[in-house]
Design a protein around this nucleic acid. Structure first.
Lengths: 244, 244
DNA sequence: CGATAGGTTGAGTCGCATCAACCGGGGTGG
DNA sequence: CCACCCCGGTTGATGCGACTCAACCTATCG
């Protein structure tokens, strides 16, 4: 298994084999979790940087009265907060959505690879800034987009992020999360997620059965969802933006 | 005028006078803008880090069809993206909400102060991570909170952030933005902002007249809005959390 | 003093929530 | 092997929160 972080970072920078090896080396301790488990909880002191190797995870926050918001979704290759150590306590939780394999990277290892190579240091910056950009785009979705646009936009985003780590076929990808989790992420009720999916299916924009998502016409979904991939900053390899 | 960034960072770290001077020195070029002007536009190449010295600004994103989302609000002492240079193009715009005085800090100056002092380097990290935490909290607001809670939460947040840079009195602060901008930030229509404000006023939770906000009973507003200030990570000086 | 930006209010509508019932499949235990 | 359960998905009925449209009010400023 190739470390998916490497695949992702190569969309930003051309890496030397030494740099690739350095990235391989950060994967020392790994940890396997089942679905719906917490990686770290709100209030805990962060101990290491988590790198998702397999499966889907998320940040989430639970309000006192039980309402739950999924704040971001992590896919293979995603680094959870390369610099959390500066903060004493987590202000949100990290949990799995599916079974997950993750690498626990010590603070020192992150510092080392940034010190070793300027390219890697910049690549880690890029990763962080893209994460922030994604968070901003979610803000836009929750604030402005209707349910159909919101879901369509999410499908576009996740498909492209999965494509960047080689986890898509021509028009399909795994889509292993429940409608309830989708609802918590999009600020919509499960029932409404279900009806919205029905609508997107009826419009021929997606197929979604079991754990498989198909986007037969990416350009159409993109147009319907006002999706503009610029915020993903695949600047070295913009070809990934076009699915032709 | 004391650089408000210094005031803010002192809530995270104890700074030496040398470190304070280093932060003073980054303010070389300044720029004055009127209200409703763009600092930098979506698609532009970022040229420097912007530090707000006076006034309120925001990030925003405009959809093709005109819908506008204010993604975050910048107050005096806020640094806009200390490391944008890694990205080639802005994926959103920065605009003023009121007249603004800002400092344009060159990339090199940021690098220098981080290199000079480990404390400052960590303090800048802290600033970045808190910005990200605020963004996540907005995601929660937009996804889960009702209009009254959403607005109440925003008032709590802004009041505390202003307090951290000395821009509040006992129970009041300047609140110079329009209901239309509030609406764009909270994902609500202007009309509904207006009615929600009326409701908060009627409940005695806020007073808002002209450009002055008063929160007579912070604890009450905090409870009504499910506001938990942990995400602001005022870890060195938690006293700021209590308004008694 | 008129123009204009921002704020306020009412009436009608719509998107999405809630509640509730039901379906289907995979896993488990008798 | 079948009965049952439970989780996730699906559908209908009804209600509420927020939107839209539209009018009007108020303060500020040239």
């Amino acid at each position: 298994m190739v470390n998916p972080l490497i695949r992702k970072l190569e969309h930003f920078a051309r890496l030397t084999s030494g740099e690739r090896q350095a990235l391989e080396r950060v994967v020392q301790t790994t940890r396997r979790l089942g679905p719906r488990e917490d990686v770290i909880r709100d209030g805990d002191r962060p101990r290491h940087v988590n790198l998702i190797l397999e499966g889907w995870a998320c940040r989430y926050k639970q309000l006192e009265d039980g309402r739950r918001q999924v704040i971001s979704i992590f896919l293979p290759g995603d680094l959870c907060d390369p610099h959390v150590f500066v903060l004493r306590k987590m202000d949100h939780s990290l949990g799995t959505l599916t079974p997950v394999l993750l690498a626990e990277i010590p603070e020192a290892a992150i510092r080392e690879i940034s010190a070793e190579s300027r390219t890697l240091s910049e690549a880690l910056w890029w990763e962080m800034l893209v994460t922030a950009a994604i968070q901003r785009e979610w803000t836009v979705s929750l604030g402005q987009r209707l349910a159909t646009e919101r879901l369509g936009h999410l499908f576009c985003e996740l498909f492209m992020r999965l494509k960047a780590v080689g986890l898509t076929s021509e028009t399909s990808c795994e889509f292993p999360i429940t409608q309830a989790d989708l609802g918590d992420a999009m600020g919509l009720s499960t029932v409404h997620i279900n009806r919205t999916l029905k609508e997107l299916r009826a419009a021929g924009l997606i197929r979604l059965r079991g754990r498989q998502l198909t986007i037969p016409d990416f350009a159409a979904l993109r147009a319907a969802s006002l999706f503009d991939p610029a915020y993903l900053h695949h600047e070295r390899d913009p070809s990934i933006l076009h699915d032709d």
